[in-house]
Each structure stands twice: as structure tokens, then as C-alpha cells.
Amino acid sequence: MSRQLRRGAKTIALFLAVTVVASCATLPRSGPNKREIFAGSVLREGDAFVVSVNDRVTTATAVTPALGFSQSFQNANPIGADTIRPGDTLGLIIYENVEDGLLTNTGASASLIDEVQVDSAGMIFIPYAGRIRAAGNTPEALRRVITRRLDEQTPDPQVLVRRLAGDGATVSIVGGAGAQGVYPIERPTRTLTAMIAAAGGISIEPDIALVSVSRGNRTETAYLRDLYRNPHLDIALRDGDRIFIEEDTRSFTVLGATGAQTRLEFQAEVISAIEALAQVGGLNATLANPTGVFVFRNEPEEIAEAVLGRDDLDGTQRLVYVLDLTQPTGMFNARDFIIRSGDTVYVTEAPIVAWNRSVAAIFGSLGTISSTSATLGIE
């Protein structure tokens, strides 16, 4: 009886060992291995193009965010702090060199036209001069226009124009500004960076700060740092501009045999593959396969054709970029390869890791059987 039990236990142990070996591929792991990813290539009837990263690929894929202000925003000249606007109230004094003038009373040499309202169309009405565009002019420019008009009616008129009241030009600043609010456009704050400074600067990380300017029904965006790197992007402001400051919301995901598996937001305007790995603590020294670092991406048609050297693709393509950090140029390629929003960076496990799991599973199973045998008194 004892001999039969021992023989049965050995048979069970052998069966379990074979079962474990057969199921090695389904042992717990962090994701697909290098061989399985390559099996999904278009060349092997898969649905993704698997491409090894080299200098040509890094150049073709080096696409950075196309942010900045258009020529219409850049070409706007700074407005003067004394520019007349709709809603302003003006005061005029008109002097005439005749005793019986057009506008003056008998015995008076000057006529006071007080509280002339600039209408919503930017126009004012002056007797004998007609309707005149005031909005957009300075008081001095308007004085010259009125003088020319009246000179046709009375000899050598002298005109004074004063701005009595009005809100003036303002902009609103919201979001990650030091102090949100509505600010007047004054002589020191006629440009975007000057106005942001007047609002207390920004309250978010400068490297990922985006500045959006809405003017009418148009909104354009630039990185804060680019406003200082490229002075032509420091645009002149206009009355009613709306400024919104926010953090960059781009993100990417890192999975596999790394120090951490997580979704990360961009910490700079441009991030390379090596920097992306550094943000999660690099490769896991006991698990990672440095020859199998992959970047999964949906690539636009024109970039995919440039990478693959083809001109017959249609629409967005699935591309899997392969980085081999053990190659002489591997680290340089990883340093130059630009990560884009929505990318998934995946590090495969080394083949020895799967083998170690299999061995541990086998010996763990055998150990369980031996323990069971000892409990049953089987030798």
C-alpha cells in the first residue's frame, strides 16, 4: 500500500511539473515580451509597424508642439494709453479769430463744448464739422481732424480736446496668474509679458506654463518661456483681450519593468525617451531588458511615411519604436527621441526573469507535494 502511495505521489508531482512548464507563458508578468511585440508587426500579419530607432527616425519624428501667435497678433502695434475709445467722454474748447463766430456767443472768443460722448461706433458730432471718428485717435490727432473740418467754415480756428472720463482699454487675466483681475493697458503694460508681470507673475511652474490670448472670436496660445526667448511673440495688447494662464496638460504613460508604472504629465516643453524613463526611476535593474524599450504611438500619415520611407499609407498609423540601450548609439538615440503626448513607453522583461519564475513555480509545486506526502506519511 505504501509503495502504491509513493508511486502515485511521484506521478502527481511529474504531472504538476509538466503542467507548470507548459503554462510558463501564462505566468504572472508585467506585459508582453519582446518576441510577442515583434509578432504583432505588419511584416508578420500584425497591425503595427515596428521600427528600430536610429538617427533618421529621431529626425523624422522630432515634432514639437506648434504653439505661438499668428502674424496678425504679432503685427499689432502697441496702443497708446491716451487712445480714445467708444464710451469715452470728451471736452472741447474751440477758439475763433472773428467777433461773430460759428460756435461762439457774441463777445466771446471761445466756445466750450463739454461732455461729448463717443458713441458705440466710435463717432462724435461737432456742429459745422459733422460726424467725426474719434475712437482710435489720440486727443491730439482728433484736434487736428476737427481743426481741418472747421477751417473750411471759420478762419484759423484753434481747438483743444481733452479726455474727461472713460474706462480706457483693459484686459482680463485669469488662471495661473499671481493676481487674477481686470487691468488697464497703461504705458508700462502695453505688451503681454509686462501685463503678466503687473498681475503678479504666474503661480505655476514656468517650464509648463501656457499663455492663451483671446481677441474677439480668436484664441491663440504660446509657452511662457517662448515669450522671453522670442521677443516677437511678446505681442501688443488690445482693449478687451482675455488672457488665460494654465499648465501644460500633455501626458504619457510608462509601463513594464521600470522603477514605477504610472501616467506622467510633461515637466518641460520637450521630453526625450531617456528623460521619460528617468522620471520613473529608470529601468528596474532586476527585471528590465535594456534591448527591449518600446514606444507605442499613433503616428500621423505624413510622419509615418517619412519614417517608413513610403508614400502609400492612408491615415493615422500604429507605430512601435524600438530602443536598444545596449547598442553603441543606443543611449544617444534614447536621448534624441522625442516623446509626444499620448505615448506609451513600455520596457520588456529580460528572458531570464520568465525562466526564474518558471523554476520557482516548479520547485514551489514540488515543495508543496513533498509537504503533502510527509503529512500523509508517504516516503
Rank of each mutant, 00 (worst) to 15 (best):
T189M: 11
D167F: 13
L264V: 15
G309S: 10
R250Y: 03
I84Y: 01
G31S: 01
A354S: 10
I369R: 02
V182N: 02
V320S: 03
N137A: 07
V345G: 09
T104M: 05
S370K: 14
R357Q: 12
P28Y: 04
G168I: 14
T316S: 03
T372I: 15
T106V: 15
R187E: 12
S251Y: 09
P28I: 08
A135F: 07
T61M: 12
L287C: 06
G181E: 01
N356F: 10
Q117Y: 14
I339Q: 00
D55E: 15
S111R: 09
G91Q: 06
M1R: 12
D156L: 14
R297E: 02
P206K: 05
D167C: 03
R133M: 11
L103W: 02
R131H: 08
T11W: 06
K34Q: 12
F266I: 04
G40T: 14
G91T: 12
T291H: 11
L376S: 04
L160R: 07
R133N: 05
G281R: 06
D167R: 15
L90H: 02
V171L: 04
S72V: 13
E301V: 13
D47V: 15
A334S: 10
R218Y: 12
E305I: 12
L160Q: 10
Q4P: 03
S373H: 00
G175D: 00
F38Q: 08
I173E: 00
G168K: 11
T19I: 14
F73V: 02
L192K: 06
L142F: 07
D239Q: 05
T221F: 02
D311M: 13
S111E: 03
G46L: 13
A209Q: 05
T189S: 12
L67Q: 07
Y228H: 11
S72A: 05
D311P: 08
N97L: 11
F337L: 11
L16P: 00
R242P: 03
S70D: 09
F69Y: 09
T329C: 00
R7Q: 14
S23G: 06
R3P: 00
I173C: 02
I202C: 04
I37C: 08
F363D: 03
S120M: 07
D239K: 02
T316V: 11
T64H: 11
N54S: 05
N54E: 04
V307R: 12
V213S: 05
I378R: 05
T61D: 03
Q71R: 13
C24K: 13
D119V: 02
Y223L: 01
L255P: 08
A121Q: 13
L237Q: 04
R297K: 10
Y183L: 11
V322Q: 10
Y183Q: 01
D314M: 11
V171W: 03
A360K: 14
V213D: 01
P328C: 09
R250K: 06
E186M: 09
I204K: 02
S52C: 01
K34W: 05
A209L: 12
E152F: 07
L192P: 03
E45T: 13
N333F: 12
V211S: 03
E305M: 13
E96R: 02
A60W: 08
V98F: 06
N284P: 11
L92H: 00
F49K: 07
R242W: 05
A9C: 10
E220Y: 04
A134Y: 07
